[in-house]
Write a protein that binds this DNA or RNA. Structure first.
Length: 866
RNA sequence: GGGGGCAUGGCGGAAUCGGUAGACGCAGCGGACUUAAAAUCCGCAGGCCCAUAAGGGCUGUAAGGGUUCAAGUCCCUUUGCCCCCA
């Protein structure tokens, strides 16, 4: 308890006080769950330690904290940890720009962010903190890599990769945006051929796709996004031989084998190995020039749909597998080497992209499907992609297109020129990064033995300290001879370490497993601990991780389950994707410059402080460039963490975007002050929460005075509504509204009998505890409540307390509401009908007519239909 | 282009299985307290219309249509916005 000025609410005084006490007493240390005890794993996506907490973090962690606190009150053993996604480029960029050591920079950021997190009053067990850049963590990331390597799921291959010329590193496809720019540096990404490490996620594609259906606790749209990303399509692989009956040829994948007879050309990726042998001498120059140009542009650029499809004929041709006619071969920008077989068959009549390509290059269009089976009189003016009946297709004419695919595939199969095939959009996961500040890949390259794993007992392969990091020139580790030079663990000869580090998504794809057993030095986690806590009951984070982080985590969880290292195959049972925190933004429409809100004098008529021009206003995600960021520290300093928490929860439902509004923050602060005064008045009148409390549940509601009964009803309505709001869909906004209603209903609290007062106040403080943990704890102690408010039991609902002698009944006439009458709360249908018919409202609106039909909804309404 | 979602007062948002639309809050207005202001407390409040008033009527959930005793909620069409994939 804090002494100063007891009648006023001073959050700054009480919050630090209670944070200190909770920590000292270990209130939030995860209890070892007893046998049979219900466990609950509440997890927030751990942050990158950038050094400053922003409002998006606050929203994320407050949501998870409310859930964790509520589960504790409901008697569960709760795991609610926090950690740091601590490898990554910003630390390295800081090293380049300011010469600081990435490790020092990261540690300092973690310290300051940890302090900021503490000031929010989160019920986190800090003893379980996990930091991915610490050797005692990344030792196990390396071990995980070696497990994958041992099963052939980590492998090296030469690949055309996305090269970021600014950050001097390779990027995964997912890290390149639609405009072909790096997600981090914003640079135009180039394509290069490099030998890189990959993880075989495609081997798990079917399982990852099929099990999405079972993730009923995930938002539909996240599951859809993952399904699209995996992109399974069924079709056929078809071989176009160079000549018959020759063996060799070009294989294509198509989802439309039914259009095979419409093929008028073939297109290869410029990088396809067959390009040289199919290029005629007179086309050699044009082909070479085109390939050189393609090497400079990214995959996204090449396939962008709004630009013309460019290509060059090679001069050579292949043979159609069924018609045996010659098919000319082209190369074009829109075919990518790593996609399918790197070659597609061109069917301009039935594919929009092929039609566009054929039109601009004068290639013939051959219609083989028509809606009614009749041949078309005129050449089509666009591709027909719908179903129909085959024409011009040799023996397949008249067959429905849906049935034709398997028939044609079977014919090809018989000829040894094709087979059914399932194709995925998902690629294997490229994890090599030519950077310093990441987890070293524990591999040694030996002239004789090849890629040799570092023996498990030699892990971790420590990241060397004191390394000079330059802006350009690839991996800093590669030039570190004393580090890279080692003996081969197999043959003992001089060998060289792998100098690439891992994609940080690798580190963040298993951290939730480490939390269950964070200090284990013998293994990544014990099976006992991991199986006791996994899967995560509630995962909370931003929707920006809907694809990558969540898919990678699912993949590694499945892999470890296959290794019998854990029992669950899916890591996250329920997922909540919280909306962005937005703030008001001002922009001068003429200059397109953003104006800081502080510089705008009159928000009702916002004008440019320099020119006086009127400004556009809208809500956008907080960011430095838009000058609209709100610093959580300043909000906490001014109003306290409890107000910030309440505001964020109340202002919008958790999955929707939230518009920051200072006036609403103020309003929330006022509510907490009002609550404080309310409880203070109760205390001043001698109210306490210690000692034996009378059990009101046994006393029938009708024996209480009307006021006692009203207050009890408000108490139990609050229990019912708030429990419901926190049960299935997390509706924190309406839960806070119910707390306000409850408080408003206690205006005459002091006139109620002591037992009713005590029940109301204790209930109010316990229901409030997950939302405003400091305020509720302080008031609980002022009233001499036993122990901590956070160690109480969630109040249980007394149905009888909700009962009312009379309730309003809506009278409708012909479905239109005409008013209400008071009826006994327990009246049956017949009584309700006769009361409704006898009412003044019925008399007025029916004017003596007898209703033809009467609909009675007990407890709600009676509808009279004349 | 394909897939998914959303649209409710001046604003953020409520509304269980179709059953009094606008809970709760912000902003606003009126009153009390005060020398005054702030703070606090009490009250009003979707729109339009009638009435001196008490009160009453009509209308209203992007637009249009449908199902139903009853539609913000279900179905169809249109428009606008957002997200994902191309």
């Amino acid at each position: 308890m804090v002494a100063a000025d007891p009648s006023r609410y001073h959050p700054s005084a009480i919050e630090a006080h209670w944070q200190h006490i909770w920590e000292r007493e270990g209130l939030y240390r995860t209890p070892p769950p007893r046998p049979g005890e219900r466990t609950f794993y509440a997890l927030s996506m751990f942050p990158y330690p950038s050094g400053s907490l922003h409002m998006g973090h606050v929203r994320n962690y407050v949501i998870t904290d409310v859930i964790a606190r509520m589960q504790r009150l409901k008697g569960a053993a709760v795991l609610h940890p926090m950690g740091w996604d601590a490898f990554g480029l910003p630390a390295e960029n800081a090293a380049i720009e300011r010469g600081v050591d990435p490790a020092d920079w990261t540690e300092a950021n973690i310290r300051s962010m940890r302090d900021q997190l503490r000031s929010l009053g989160l019920s986190i067990d800090w003893d379980r903190e996990v930091t991915t850049c610490h050797p005692d963590y990344y030792r196990w990331t390396q071990s995980l890599f070696l497990r994958l390597f041992a099963r052939g799921l980590a492998y090296r291959k030469e690949a055309a990769v996305n090269w970021d010329p600014v950050d001097q590193t390779v990027l995964a496809n997912e890290q390149v945006d639609a405009a072909g720019r790096s997600w981090r540096s914003g640079a135009q990404v180039e394509r290069r051929l490099l030998r890189q490490w990959f993880l075989g996620i495609t081997r798990y594609a079917d399982g990852l796709l099929d099990d999405l259906e079972r993730l009923q606790g995930w938002p539909e749209r996240v599951r859809t996004m993952q399904a699209n990303w995996i992109g399974r399509s069924r079709g056929a692989e078809i071989r176009f031989p160079l000549a018959l009956p020759a063996e060799a040829g070009i294989s294509v994948f198509t989802t439309r084998p039914d259009t095979l007879f419409g093929v008028t050309y073939l297109v290869l990726a410029p990088e396809h190995p067959m390009v040289d042998s199919l290029t005629s001498t007179d086309q050699a120059g044009a082909v070479e020039a085109f390939r050189a140009e393609m090497a400079r542009s990214s995959a996204r650029e090449r396939t962008a749909e709004d630009r013309p499809k460019r290509g060059v004929a090679l001069g050579g041709s292949v043979v159609h597998p069924l018609t045996r006619q010659a098919v000319p071969v082209w190369i074009a920008d829109y075919v990518l080497p790593e996609y399918g077989t790197g070659a597609v068959m061109g069917v301009p009549a039935h594919d929009a992209r092929d039609f566009a390509f054929a039109s601009s290059h004068g290639l013939p269009v051959r219609v083989v499907i028509s809606e009614d089976g009749q041949a078309l009189a005129d050449p089509p003016d666009g591709a027909y992609v719908g179903p129909g009946v085959l024409i011009n297709s040799m023996g397949f004419d008249g067959v429905a297109s849906a049935a034709a695919g398997p028939l044609i595939t079977a014919a090809l199969s018989a000829a040894g020129l094709g087979a059914e095939k399932v194709q995925y959009r998902l690629r294997d996961w490229l994890i090599s990064r030519q950077r310093y500040w990441g987890c070293p890949i524990p591999i040694i390259h030996c002239q004789d033995c090849g890629a040799v794993p570092v023996p498990e007992e030699q892990l971790p392969v420590l990241l060397p300290r004191g390394v000079e990091i330059r802006a350009r020139g690839g991996s800093p580790l590669a030039s570190l001879e004393h580090w890279a030079a080692v003996d081969c663990p197999c043959c003992g000869k001089a060998a060289r370490r792998e100098t690439d580090t891992m994609d940080t998504f690798m580190c963040s794809s298993w951290y939730f497993l480490r939390y269950t057993d964070p200090r284990n030095s013998d293994s990544a986690f014990s099976s006992e601990a991991v199986n006791r806590w996994m899967g995560v009951d509630q995962y909370v984070g931003g929707v920006e991780h809907a694809i990558l982080h969540l898919l990678y985590s699912r993949f590694l969880t499945r892999f470890l389950a296959d290794q019998n290292l854990l029992q669950v195959r899916e890591p996250f049972d329920r997922l909540l994707t919280q909306g962005m925190v937005q703030a008001i933004t001002y922009r001068n429409p003429a200059t397109r410059r953003y104006i800081a809100p502080a510089a705008v004098k009159d928000p009702t008529d916002p004008r440019d402080p320099e020119t006086g021009e009127p400004l556009d206003t809208f809500f956008e995600k907080m960011s430095k460039s838009k000058h609209n960021g709100i610093d959580p520290n300043s909000v906490i300093e001014r109003y306290g963490a409890d107000t910030a928490r309440m505001f964020i929860l109340f202002k919008a439902p958790p999955e929707k975007d939230l518009e920051w509004d200072d006036a609403d923050v103020e309003g929330q602060f006022r509510f907490l002050q009002r609550l404080w005064r309310q409880i203070d008045a109760f205390a001043a009148a001698g109210g306490r929460l210690d000692g034996q409390r009378e059990d009101l549940a046994g006393i029938p509601a009708r024996t209480l005075s009307p006021l006692d009964r009203d207050i009890r009803r408000a108490t139990h309505v609050a229990i019912k509504e708030i429990s419901q709001d926190l049960e299935d869909a997390y509706q924190f906004n309406t839960a806070v509204a119910e707390l306000m209603k409850f408080s408003n209903a206690l205006a005459d609290l002091g006139k109620a009998q002591p037992a009713v007062q005590q029940e109301a106040v204790a209930t109010l403080l316990i229901l409030l505890a997950p939302f405003a943990p400091h305020l509720s704890e302080e008031l609980w102690h002022r009233l001499h409540g036993p122990g901590s408010v956070h160690s109480q039991r969630w109040p249980s609902l007394d149905q009888d307390a909700l009962s009312q002698d009379t309730i309003p009944l809506v009278i409708q006439v012909r479905g239109r509401t005409r008013g209400t009458i008071q009826v006994p709360g327990n009246a049956d249908r017949a009584t309700l009908e006769s009361l409704a018919l006898a009412s003044d409202l019925a008399g007025k609106w029916l004017q003596g007519a007898r209703p033809r039909r009467v609909i009675v909804v007990p407890g709600r309404l009676v509808n009279l239909v004349p």
